[in-house]
Every structure is written in C-alpha cells, then in structure tokens.
Design a protein around this nucleic acid. Sequence first.
DNA 1: TAGCGTTCTTAAGATACCTTAATGGAATAG
DNA 2: CTATTCCATTAAGGTATCTTAAGAACGCTA
Lengths: 192, 192
Amino acid sequence: MYDLLIGNIKELVPITEDESKLIQKSFEPVYLKKKQFLLQSGEYSNHMRFISQGCVKLYSIDELGAEHILQFGISGWWINDLYAYLTQKPATFFIQAITQSTVLQIHRDRLDELFDKIHMMDRFFRIKTQNGYVALQERTINSMSQSAEQRYLEFLGRYRDIEQQIPQYMLASYLGVTPEHLSTIRKNIRDY
Amino acid sequence: MYDLLIGNIKELVPITEDESKLIQKSFEPVYLKKKQFLLQSGEYSNHMRFISQGCVKLYSIDELGAEHILQFGISGWWINDLYAYLTQKPATFFIQAITQSTVLQIHRDRLDELFDKIHMMDRFFRIKTQNGYVALQERTINSMSQSAEQRYLEFLGRYRDIEQQIPQYMLASYLGVTPEHLSTIRKNIRDY
DNA sequence: TAGCGTTCTTAAGATACCTTAATGGAATAG
DNA sequence: CTATTCCATTAAGGTATCTTAAGAACGCTA
C-alpha cells in the first residue's frame, strides 16, 4: 500500500532507505466507503492526502446549493482543500469518495517535521505543487477559450481513465455545464 | 531594488546574510518599456521572474487570435510561463509590460544551484507555489459559480491597485468576457 | 493645438448554455 | 425480486453573453 506513495516520491526526488521508512511511519491509512466524506465544509483540514486506491472528488457548494467539482483524484494523486490546510481555517470544500477508496494521510505536524528533517520533502512538494499549478492554469485557459464541447472532448482525450469511474453528471459539474447540456453535447457528437 | 525581493523571501523563510548575498548575485535586472515583451510564445523560458516595479500581463492567444489574460503581475509578484520553464519546451504564453517595469530574473541553472545550496529556497518556492495554486483554485471556482458581474465586483474588491493600472479591455480579458459586455455590466452597476 | 490612434460606450441581433419538466432505464436497498 | 431512488435523455422556452457595427471620449505626438 505504501509502495505507490514511496514510488510517487522517488519519481521526483532521491530519498534514502531510512528516510523512506520515516516517511512511511508518518502516514496513516484511511478507508472510505463509496460516498463517504474525507472532509466536509466547515471542518479543519489538518492532513495532506494521497490516494492509494479508488476515486474521490473535491468540490464546493455555492449559495444556491449547486455543486462545483474542482478536481477528481484517482490512485497516485494528491488531494486536499489546500487553502484550509495552509491557513488552518475551516474548509470550504468537500472531499468525498466516488468509489470505495484508500487514502494515505499525514498530519501537518508530522509533515512539518519531515520538511525540517528531509530537504527533499520540501523539494518534492515544491515540484508537485508546481505541476498542479500548471495543470490548473491550463484548465483555466481552456475554460476561457473553449466551448463546452471542446472541453468535453479534451477531457476524454486526457482522462479517459477517470471518465470511466465517474457518473456523467459529475463530469458535467467538473466541466462547468449542466448534466442536460452535456447530454445534448454527447448527442451532437454521436450525430456527427 | 533587491530589497523587495529579499523581503519577499524573508517574509516566508529564514535566510542568513550570506545566503541573501548569494541570492542577490544570482538575479539580474531587466528593464521593460511599456508594451515590451519579456517572453513571447515559441521562445524558451529559462528564468524565474520577480516584478520589482511596474505592471505586466501573462496571456495566451487562441486559434481565433483572441487574447486571454491569465494573470496580471505587479510589484512584489512572481510571474512566468511555468509550464515552459519546467518542461523546457517553447512557451505558449506571452509576458508583456503594461507599464514601464523592472523585473529581477534568475536563470534556471542558477536557481537549481540555489535549491541545492539553500534548503530554504526549496521551501520558499514550495510555499509561494502553494499560495499561487490556492489563488488560482479560487478563481476557477468563481468562474464556475459566479456571473460576470459578480466576478467584476470581486476583482474590484480584491485588486483595486491593479485595476487602476490597466485598461478596461484587459480586465475584460482577464474576467473572460468581451470589453463590450464589461461595459454594459458597468452601466448596469451605475444605474443600480 | 490639431490630428490620429486607442479605448470605451451603446445597441441590435445571434448563440451557447440554462431552467424546467417529463420519461425511461439503471442501480440499489429492503 | 421488487420498490424506490438515482441517472441520462429529450425538448421547449429563457437568459447571459457574444458579435458586429458605429460613434464618442480620451490621450498621445507632431
């Protein structure tokens, strides 16, 4: 279970065997059933989270009660309400399991200890965050310059592995359209 | 000129006097006239850039020739086509001075040296990138859940210092609406 | 101070996407 | 296995935003 996590780290930075052991000891597993919450709006987010298995979603609910999915997470991805984690303020997002999932999480205090002991942990999270930033930036550009149909097709091309794990109305929420509209988009594509 | 840069770093992580000197030696100033480019699409982005003075914009141009502004940068902000910088591929974005500006930039090779010599530099960019990620995430949520008028008002509340340095059509591009539409939004607000 | 390019405004018609509502099929719980 | 809830589809009418076009205001520069 920890292999995926350690592999994820070693992919980007070198760590020693001892450091690897220390890291593993700092994470604890969380088992989630389908639809179970890992975090709810209003709670404090004191852990960094790595998805070992399954599929989860990060979303917010606006004043009108509508759900907006910011991010999906599958095996090998990190997920968090980063703002809440960093500021130690109550979360504004929800994190919920879409399928039965296993998450490895580390408490902020443990992680801060690792940051002080292991230079490469700072580097690892620097690079990870940079990559996440770039991906989010590209999504922003796409949502500004592309039609819903183009965004749908691009999502399919890039994340077919996620598309197969989620219901269509969640993809609609991620793309920023109504489920009805996504349905007509798909119909238009079918009809060429 | 370097005071703002060093202050920006010391705000987040502790560095020694020697390290501060080393950092300053690694950055070089770039002076930009109004409308001058710091980076153009197709070029390689080999520097991390800190805006010491002035106002610049980071934008892309889509297939239809329309400009989409991803980020403004003013005094004290970092700006880059991070994807191009990290992957060493040709840039897809432009960075252009809106007003006469001074930028402090560091070459990737120098920065990588700093990362190896100074643990706190990795931490500094980790935290900076995390903060940038959180800000971008909030912008994403806003563009998904709010009307153009709400986004305009929120921008005014948050970045009035930027709004005063840029023409309105650039703000329209940043908000993801046409200049004409922003104009009618403003009219509606005037008329209560 | 005149002239010219740049930016902002206004308005009419077009379009992408939303809202609501109804239906049938698929998944899930008892 | 059946009832019930959840999910995808379709369609009609509505709204936010875009496109196009024109003129007005602003700000350089000669």
